Amino acid sequence: MRRSSLFVVIVAIACAPALARAQTGDVPSSAIMAAPQVQPEAIAALEKMSAYLRSLKQFGLHADTTIDLVMEDGQKLEFPGTLNYKVRSPNGLYIGMKSDRKERELYYDGKTLTVYGPRNKLYAQTPAPPTIAGLLALAEDKYGIELPLADLFLWGTARAPVSALRSAAYVGPARIDGSVTDQYAFRQDGVDWQIWIEAGDKPLPRRMVITTTDDAAQPQYASTLRWNTNATIRDGDFAFTAPKDAHRIELVAAQEVSQ
C-alpha cells in the first residue's frame, strides 16, 4: 500500500462467531484499545486476500470513490468519483475514471498503453511491457503515473512487501453493501490504511480507506468496491480506437517534466 496519491492519474473468513458479531454490531474493544503491533492474523488475512486476487484470471470492478484535496490554506475539499475496471491476466487492462472535474480512460492490450481524455479528445500512447505488472512499473517509474487501485495487483509481490508494515491489526466484523466483511488496520511510513475483506472463500477487498499521515492535513482516499468475477471480457475491451476528432499528444517521461 502506498499513499493516497496513487489513486490520482494524470490525466482507487467467515466463521460462525464472526457472522454473529457482524449481526449484532459488536466490535471487540481489544482491537481498538490494543497498542500498535503486527498481528499474525492480520498479515495472514492480507496474504490470503492477495493470493485470491492473483488467482483471478479476469474480472470486472466498479468503485465509488472519494478523495480529499488540500487547499493552500489547509482546508480539505472532498471530491467523489467512480472507477470501472476490466481485467484479464496477464496482459489486458481497461480503466475508466470519472468525476465532476475529470474523465480519463486507460487502455492496455499487452503491447501499448493509451491514456485518453474523452472531454478534451486528447490521447497519448507508448509501447508497454507484456504484463500488467510490467505496465505498472513502467507507468510509475518512467512516467510518474500511479494507477488507481494499483495495489490490487501489487499485494503479495515484492513491490508491496509486508515487511514495510509497522502495525497490522484486526478491528472487527462489519457489513459492506450487505456483505459480511472483516476490517483490518495497517500502518507504514507516511500512510495509514484500512481494508474490509469479504468473509468466506472469496476474500475480496470490499472497502479501502487510506490516510496520508506525513501531511499535516492528513487527506484521505476512500473507495467501496463492487466485484464481478464472472464478467464477460473481450479483446476489444483493451483496444483503443481514436475518434475521428481526437488528437494525439506526447506522453512525456517524468524526468523530462522535472527538468
Score class of each variant (00 low, 15 high):
residue 50 S to V: 12
residue 109 D to E: 11
residue 109 D to Q: 12
residue 104 R to W: 15
residue 42 A to T: 12
residue 90 P to E: 00
residue 107 Y to V: 06
residue 74 G to P: 02
residue 136 L to W: 05
residue 100 D to N: 13
residue 132 I to D: 03
residue 30 S to G: 09
residue 67 I to V: 10
residue 139 A to R: 07
residue 73 D to L: 03
residue 58 Q to K: 13
residue 67 I to F: 14
residue 81 G to P: 08
residue 123 Y to E: 05
residue 65 T to Q: 01
residue 91 N to K: 10
residue 121 K to D: 08
residue 127 P to W: 03
residue 126 T to V: 08
residue 142 K to E: 00
residue 49 M to V: 09
residue 130 P to V: 00
residue 71 M to C: 14
residue 23 Q to Y: 00
residue 93 L to D: 01
residue 103 E to D: 12
residue 21 R to A: 10
residue 28 P to C: 03
residue 111 K to Q: 02
residue 115 V to A: 14
residue 86 K to E: 15
residue 27 V to S: 08
residue 77 L to H: 07
residue 108 Y to I: 03
residue 53 L to T: 02
residue 90 P to I: 00
residue 124 A to S: 03
residue 106 L to N: 10
residue 98 K to I: 07
residue 120 N to I: 03
residue 91 N to D: 14
residue 36 P to K: 07
residue 34 A to H: 12
residue 92 G to N: 06
residue 87 V to D: 08
residue 99 S to L: 07
residue 39 Q to N: 14
residue 45 A to G: 07
residue 92 G to D: 06
residue 42 A to E: 11
residue 82 T to E: 15
residue 45 A to P: 06
residue 44 A to H: 13
residue 110 G to S: 10
residue 136 L to G: 04
residue 29 S to D: 11
residue 80 P to E: 06
residue 144 G to W: 00
residue 48 K to Y: 08
residue 98 K to A: 09
residue 96 G to M: 02
residue 118 P to L: 12
residue 113 L to I: 14
residue 29 S to F: 13
residue 68 D to H: 08
residue 40 P to G: 06
residue 73 D to W: 01
residue 148 P to I: 10
residue 89 S to K: 12
residue 60 G to R: 03
residue 136 L to C: 06
residue 121 K to W: 09
residue 66 T to S: 05
residue 106 L to A: 10
residue 55 S to H: 04
residue 105 E to N: 15
residue 139 A to V: 02
residue 122 L to A: 11
residue 99 S to Q: 04
residue 83 L to H: 09
residue 113 L to Q: 09
residue 108 Y to V: 06
residue 72 E to C: 09
residue 73 D to N: 12
residue 134 G to S: 13
residue 34 A to D: 09
residue 22 A to I: 06
residue 32 I to W: 05
residue 28 P to S: 10
residue 89 S to G: 07
residue 131 T to Y: 05
residue 78 E to F: 00
residue 92 G to S: 08
residue 114 T to L: 10
residue 50 S to E: 09
residue 54 R to F: 07
residue 129 P to E: 07
residue 96 G to H: 12
residue 111 K to N: 09
residue 79 F to V: 13
residue 139 A to C: 05
residue 107 Y to S: 07
residue 63 A to W: 06
residue 25 G to K: 04
residue 101 R to D: 12
residue 59 F to A: 00
residue 110 G to M: 11
residue 45 A to M: 03
